[in-house]
Design a protein around this nucleic acid. Sequence first.
RNA 1: GGCCUCAUCGUCUAACGGUUAGGACAUUGCCUUCUCAAGGCAAGAAUCAGAGUUCGAUUCUCUGUGAGGUCACCA
Length: 442
Amino acid sequence: MENQKIIVRYPPSPTGLFHIGNARTFLFNYLFAKQNDGQIVFRLEDTDKERSKEEYANDIIENLKWLGIEPDFSTMVKQSERSEIYKKYINKLIEEGKAYFAEPAFAEATAGEGRKVIRFRNPNKKIKFNDLIRGDIEFDTTELKDFVIAKSLDEPVYHLAVVVDDFEMGVTHIIRGDDGISNTPRQILIQEAIGAPRPIYAHLPLMLAEDKTKLSKRKHGEQVSVSFYKNAGYLPEAMINFLVMVGWNPGNDQEIWSKEELIKIFDIKKVQKKGGIFNIEKLRWLNKEYMRLQKNNTKNLIIEKLKVKFENKKIHPKLVETIFEKIEVISDIDVLIENGELDYFFNKPELEIDKICWKNQSKEDCKQKLEKILVLAKGGTFEDFLRCHLRELAEKEGKGEVLWPLRYVLSGREKSPDPFTLIEILGVEETIKRIQNAIQIL
RNA sequence: GGCCUCAUCGUCUAACGGUUAGGACAUUGCCUUCUCAAGGCAAGAAUCAGAGUUCGAUUCUCUGUGAGGUCACCA
């Protein structure tokens, strides 16, 4: 028994984009299976013909690959293709008197005459099961009544299909969200009826939204979809690291963990019982940490983004470096672009005369300083100007009085990187042009 | 409402029944600085309440309170 191969499952229902909460549930399954050298079977629960869509199935598979927590796709089954199997079990249950045909409780006008549903004959007993995370849980199943297990012989309902599939696929551990707890007694009843062994259960606490309720597309929007994060350029390593830390932690102060390390150290018994809030601030911080670890890749992505926006312009490495320091997620660049915070690196900025001078500095003084800078920029080498002369001037004549006007004249913004960085990116020629332009309008 | 589950800083969490209740994110302040960002340093911030067990309770028990989940011919 103890040496039995561990089999877990991913059973997504393709009725929507891959949900971040599901991703987390699958991640826990993944870590548990991998550390035990087990198998992960994959099953599309698409018995709801109305809502199941091919594109959703693809989205789930694609994002699973992106996260790097793939199941064993060779085991993939679709419940919609297994009605013969379910039928066999349903018939058997009926033959044994454990289920029976019944009048539909609410036949729609279009449902036609003579339609019958199949109900489970509830033995009305107490079910007690042990949960790896929560310990013993007991239910009285009487209140479940004789629940429906199939709409017809060919249309099983979720509970029946799940139990049959888990049994047939040899699933040993069911690791799923908290919201599955109340389904468990019902499923155990069916297991007992078809003679299936009881798998080991582990119910994970839910990942919640800021309002402490279950993350849902309807209430919380596109941020519940994994593809949202993928499209925004979050790194899969950061996502995994983040997701696993909501509800579990290694018991020490380390925050950054690779997937390989997690597989080694993960302990399902130490999973939290309390639901955890999805805190995007921490995700962003983690993402930045991972961007730093993947500096070259990240810089290439920044360059790509810039190339799209500023087609024919040269992209200075220092600019890439500057942006790299500023952002936490690649898509932050889109915001910078949208707000025009990068324009001045490529085009001459519009200046507001009132903003050129530092604090109480007079226009005359300001103009004078700019002219001195101009002299320095024109004479000597670019290197010397940038590294020594400009600094010396600023020391001598007042940093604010020299550097503020210079920085503003170059960027046209009250907030920007320092003038040394700007000059390095813009080059002497452009720097001189912008200073001259400012002197003229002053 | 019935049933089930849960309860440590704002958030994620740590703490063999004995700790000044620790860390991280966020926040605030200071340093650095012409501004912003980054970086460095520092600070504030929690055991839901009430009983009980115990020499001693964040930890064990009970009650209350609060929160969440679930109550489909959806999965």
